[in-house]
Amino acid sequence: MSRSPVSPRSPPAVSRTRFGAGRMWPLWEWLFRIAPPSWSEYVLRHWSGRKVVIAIPWVWLGLFFLVPFLIVFKISFSEVRIAMPPYAPLIEWLGDQALQLRLNLANYTFLLTDDLYVSSYLYSIKVAAVSSLWCLAIGYPMAYAMARCTQTWRNLFLLLVMLPSFTSFLLRVYAWIGLLKNNGVINNVLMALGVINEPITMMQTDFAVYVGIVYSYLPFMILPLYNNLEKHDPALLEAAADLGARPVTTFLRITLPLSLDGIVAGLLLVFIPAVGEFVIPSLLGRTDQLMIGRVLTDEFFSNRDWPVASAVAIVMLLLLVLPIMIFQRYQTRELERRR
């Protein structure tokens, strides 16, 4: 195999000669041609279709996340006012050649002074954390079993996991009321069987909220876990067994550590939306202890206090930034490992 040495670098996409005689350049190329060569070459070489593809989600995020976030952020610093819109502008032209910027911090200090907000935040985080762990406890065995069965069964189970999402979320939560209420299905069956004499109160309890959240968010735990577990090389398990590890040891030392990324992804996919959950605690939950999502809607729609509602939302976002950042880090790590 004797090959003449070839330079490993391909020639640059654009040659340095400008304005080739008699050739018609496309307009955009012509524009680049009159720019300084280093600059135009850089753009031509690097501003590829790849960049455009990457730009699409960024534009999307900018339009539908960053801009609304900035608007909410702005409102959180204004004062409430009975008007349309129901808050005072931040920047006012005073006429006397003065521009006034009023940042009202009272909305934030108010959150700290009123017990309701702090306890709602803490309660929301507790409910979300406990629900995430329950989802993990229930979802892991399911994902594990799915990853271990044959292709046909896998597809069937995947479909079954996703099937409930085909019906309305609200309907499914309402269905739980029918199951959990005092004269609901569960209590009626238990009473008919003689297990209990009087109905167990399940509605308007923490239990009902946990049931609702775990039920609704379970697919978000199963899917990333399954996605991770399914990629495990079965030869690793055989290798562990071959080296003398019993099945339990193999699980604890091989499968579990290798699925850590999936576990973190699943936990956060449940935890993050569960913190701000509004529908489930409103329909099934306690009335004496609100979750922060409920507080938010109440402030917004009942009190029509947009500035305080915005402050509540901003603080919630800040509380979630940490887990979101952890999630991001694991996502990146997962992607890097697969490369």
Binding site: D233, A235, L236, E238, A239, D242, L243, G244, A245, L258
Partner: peptide, 20 residues
């Protein structure tokens, strides 16, 4: 007799090294 109790060890084609 399960693999973990056999007096044999195997070197796998893919090597099956534990990546973590």
């Amino acid at each position: 007799i399960p693999p973990y109790e056999r007096p044999a060890n195997m070197m796998f084609q893919s090597y099956a090294l534990f990546p973590h």
